[in-house]
């Protein structure tokens, strides 16, 4: 029908994408690119517009303005979409009375793939035993795996997953990481949304962070980590700051010590020794992506619009302080308050 080849490299381009529901702007002038053959994490707190963006990309929601294309074409214009783009949006999209196998067979009829492929996919995601059980009795983890099987059914070049780690236990998350890496290793393009950076930090190559429907950061994981800093304490801080300054290293006071713009601890220690300044503590700052994510999405201008603007969220940490070492920042960990549309 069309001269454009069905199987392009798999580049996703979002340009000026905007969606308003009445007076509420869910997605606001969003721009980003997902490079072919890479895993891109699409991050933001609950209600920041991730799901709306993905649904616009997949032709389910009509954008108010802007475009979302896959290899230059909108989803609706792809002739056999399941063989080009595989997606799993929610783990609840199953008829409770239909078995996993039959759910996939319904899709297989459209994708034009044989039933043997259905059984292969169930095997691949590790739920062959559930194939003939009705989906109503599935755990969240099984639903996620079934969704993944559906996304892979047409052997697509591009895979789009919305919160694939939701509801998975730690073992399931580890399995998912390995699985996504495996898919990327086959040269596929992956776009994975999450409201928890820690879930995807070890998996993704690139990161797009949005807050309140606007992009607040985009880049590789390494870029977002930024330049390393160290923390040093001393009984003679001014002298130490002076010595560092003479060595061309900037620093600024923090708590009862200094934040030093360098990751080279040995060099800092040598400078202190040469200046005769006693050092009480010297450590590298954890450049925690989680902290960056938290700062980006919780700064005053990006404060979550879904909460009251009058009082500060009660559990918000003071600025500059590290979030808890594991898990989500407390103020975004509210899955029951899911307001994604």
């Amino acid at each position: 029908m069309t001269a454009v080849p069905e199987r392009g490299p798999g580049r996703i381009e979002i340009r000026g994408l905007t969606k308003r529901f009445g007076s509420f702007t869910a997605v606001d002038q969003l721009d980003f690119t997902v490079q072919p053959g890479r895993i891109t994490g699409f991050l933001g707190p609950n209600g920041s517009g991730k799901t709306t963006t993905l649904r616009m990309l997949l032709g389910l929601i009509r954008p108010t303005a802007g475009t979302a294309t896959i290899d230059g074409r909108s989803y609706r214009d792809i002739t056999e979409p399941l063989t080009v783009v595989g997606s799993a949006l929610e783990a609840t999209n199953f008829h409770p009375g239909r078995t996993a196998r039959d759910h996939l067979r319904v899709l297989a009829a459209v994708a034009g793939v044989p039933d043997t492929r259905v059984d292969e996919m169930l095997e691949l995601v590790g739920i062959p035993a559930a194939a003939r059980k009705r989906a109503g009795g599935y755990s969240m983890g099984m639903r996620q795996r079934l969704g993944l099987a559906g996304a892979l059914l047409g052997d697509p070049r591009v895979i789009i997953l919305d919160e694939p780690a939701n509801g998975l236990d730690p073992e399931g998350i580890r399995w998912l990481r390995g699985f996504l890496r495996h898919l990327a290793g086959e040269g596929r393009t992956l776009l994975i949304s999450s409201h928890m950076l820690s879930e995807v930090e070890q998996t993704v190559d690139d990161v797009v962070i949005i807050a309140n429907g606007r992009r607040v950061a985009e880049g590789t994981v390494a870029e977002l980590h930024g330049e390393p800093t160290a923390y040093v304490r001393s009984s003679r801080l001014p002298a130490l700051a002076d010595a560092l300054h003479r060595a061309g290293i900037t620093s600024e006071p923090r708590d009862d010590g200094l934040t030093v713009r360098s990751g080279d601890l040995a060099h800092i220690g040598d400078i202190a020794l040469a200046a005769g300044v006693p050092v009480h503590e010297l450590r590298a700052d954890q450049t925690h992506l989680e902290e960056l994510f938290f700062n980006l999405t919780e700064s005053d201008e990006h404060r979550n619009r879904n909460r009251s603007g009058h009082e500060a969220p009660p559990e918000t940490l003071p600025p500059g302080e590290l979030p808890p070492p594991s898990g989500a920042p407390v103020s975004t960990a509210a899955p029951s308050q899911e307001v994604d549309r």
């Binding site: 389910l60 979409p81 949006l89």
Partner: peptide, 8 residues
């Protein structure tokens, strides 16, 4: 959702 994803 999956119906319209399969046949947009």
């Amino acid at each position: 959702t999956s119906t319209f994803l399969a046949t947009p």
